[in-house]
């Protein structure tokens, strides 16, 4: 690719160079092209003087031509020297004419005068025309310049105005855009708010719905749980009742046996005279299968040997507790070992 690019470089350079050359030529060519009329006008003036002038005038002409050609490069600035030039030229012609008049004054005076006057008139006219033309040109140029300036100014103003307009437009556009943007923003915000509101509402509704669903679910769960619980309770109750019935039965039997033992022992207990309310003796009793006393031991002494003995004696006197045999065999073991707490509360 670079190779191909490289192959284009040379033609491109050549083309650019060519263009530049053309452009340069064109630019250089321009003054020359415009020089033509000036040269022609100078030539005219020279022609006028050639007819009446001397070497000096010729020199002046040449000088003038030289002067004229020399400041040529700029066609526009050429004009003022040309305006003055006629004046200098006029003087020179006058001077030269007066010199020659010495010789042919008389001869030529009239004609010269006439001619001079005609010439002067012609020159005057020409000068006037030239001046007119010059003025016109000048005016035109001035006007042109003015116009151009005006145009430029206008253009500039226009441009400025346009720029301003554009700026304003831009500003307005920007403002509009800003406004639009703001409005859009506002709108968006409102929309966002509305959306959020809607969403919040939706969320609320969703939550409410969820809450309701949850409550319902919980209620349902609770109901189920309660049902399960109730079922379990019923089951437990059944078990409990069975156990309770059994326990109750056992307890009833135990209580019955207890009451028998209590009554019998209380019947048998002879409270010693020295006993008082503060005395308490705990007697542990072990019964045989038929309710006979296998062993009695003083578990907690009252501190009074006679009192303890009376308690032990009461148990032994009340024994055997044959009612034990009426109790279900599985309950008997629990009842074959008990404590008796002797406290003299009541005296028969």
């Amino acid at each position: 690719m670079s190779k191909r690019a490289g192959s284009y470089i040379l033609p491109a350079v050549l083309a650019i160079a060519l263009h530049l050359a053309v452009a340069l030529l064109g630019w250089i060519n321009l003054p020359w092209g415009e020089d033509e009329p000036d040269t022609r006008s100078v030539v005219q003036a020279t022609l006028v003087s050639t007819q009446t002038r001397t070497d000096k005038a010729q020199q002046v002409d040449e000088q003038q031509a030289a002067n004229q050609t020399q400041p040529d490069p700029a066609p526009e600035p050429d004009n003022p020297p040309r305006e003055e030039a006629p004046s200098d030229l006029e003087q020179a012609v006058i001077d030269q004419a007066s010199d020659m008049a010495d010789k042919r004054r008389e001869q030529a005076r009239e004609e010269a005068r006439e001619e001079e006057r005609a010439a002067a008139r012609r020159r005057e006219k020409e000068a006037e025309e030239a001046a007119q033309k010059q003025r016109e040109a000048e005016e035109k140029r001035e006007a042109e310049k003015q116009r151009e300036q005006e145009e430029r100014r206008k253009r500039e103003e226009e441009a400025k105005r346009k720029a301003e307009e554009k700026r304003q437009q831009e500003q307005a556009r920007k403002e509009r855009e800003a406004e639009k943007k703001r409005k859009a923003e506002e709108q968006r915000r409102k929309e966002e708010e509305a959306r959020q509101e809607r969403e919040a509402e939706k969320e609320r509704q969703r939550q409410a719905a969820e809450e309701a669903a949850r409550k319902k679910r919980e209620a349902e769960e609770k109901r189920k749980r309660e049902e399960a619980e109730a079922a379990m309770q019923r089951e437990l109750e059944g078990e409990r009742q069975a156990a309770a019935a059994k326990a109750e039965q056992a307890e009833e039997a135990a209580n019955h046996f207890k009451s028998i033992v209590k009554a019998a022992v209380e019947q048998a207990w002879r409270i010693p005279p020295r006993a008082n309310d503060s005395m308490t003796a705990k007697i542990s009793v072990r019964l045989g299968p038929s309710g006979e006393v296998l062993a009695t031991t003083v578990a907690n002494s009252s501190g009074d040997g006679g009192f303890d003995r009376s308690a032990v004696q009461a148990v032994e006197a009340a024994a055997p507790f044959t009612e034990l045999r009426d109790i279900a065999p599985e309950q008997q073991p629990a009842l074959r070992r008990f404590n008796l707490l002797f406290t003299p509360g009541e005296v028969r």
Binding site: A254, K258, V261, K262, V265, E266, Q267, W269, R270, I271, P272, P273, K282, S284, S310, A311, Q313, A314, A334, L335, R337, F338, N339, L340, L341, F342, T343, P344, G345, E346, V347, R348
Partner: peptide
């Protein structure tokens, strides 16, 4: 518990008559 803590019967009444 029933096994550990034997039945306890309280004897609060008795005779004050001589033995």
């Amino acid at each position: 518990m029933a096994r550990a803590d034997d039945l306890t019967i309280e004897i609060t009444r008795g005779s004050d008559s001589a033995t």
